[in-house]
């Protein structure tokens, strides 16, 4: 069974693999931002609470905060985005992931939307 992906109203996605959460921004968010030219990622080891601004995605025109969908410690960031930030546009929900967190509270993911609910939410925007 494929790992399930959960979504926030701020257009982040998170995929749980064991006690690790991989997160990024959704295709909708990437489309809205436009061409990404720089991604600012946190240091490994940083503790993020659910809703903290964990990363910044900068497009040609503007900078946007990315909020952590869940609480946890940053264990890895996607360093490949330094050289090719446009991957966030090209593959936002796969190769364009932003960071991996060590889950602090696995229950938090239950508060997020599943894919069907997120699609419904985006359709209202």
């Amino acid at each position: 069974m494929a790992a399930t992906i959960s979504y926030t109203k701020d257009h982040e996605w998170v995929r749980i693999e064991g006690d690790t959460a991989i997160m990024g921004i959704t295709a909708y968010a990437a489309e809205q931002l436009g061409d990404v030219v720089f991604v600012e990622l946190p240091e490994a080891g940083k503790a993020l609470k659910k809703g903290d601004a964990g990363a910044v995605v900068e497009s040609v025109k503007a900078a946007s905060d990315v909020y952590s969908p869940i609480s946890g410690e940053v264990v890895e960031v996607n360093d490949a985005l330094d050289a090719s930030p446009q991957t966030v546009n090209e593959a936002p929900e796969t190769d364009g992931w932003l960071m991996k967190l060590k889950l602090a509270d696995a229950g938090e993911v239950d508060d997020l939307m599943d894919e069907a609910a997120y699609k419904e939410f985006v359709a209202t925007l």
């Binding site: 436009g34 061409d35 030219v37 497009s59 040609v60 025109k61």
Partner: peptide, 9 residues
């Protein structure tokens, strides 16, 4: 219109 296919393109 702020963009059509994308600002960089």
């Amino acid at each position: 219109p702020v963009q059509y296919e994308g600002i960089i393109a």
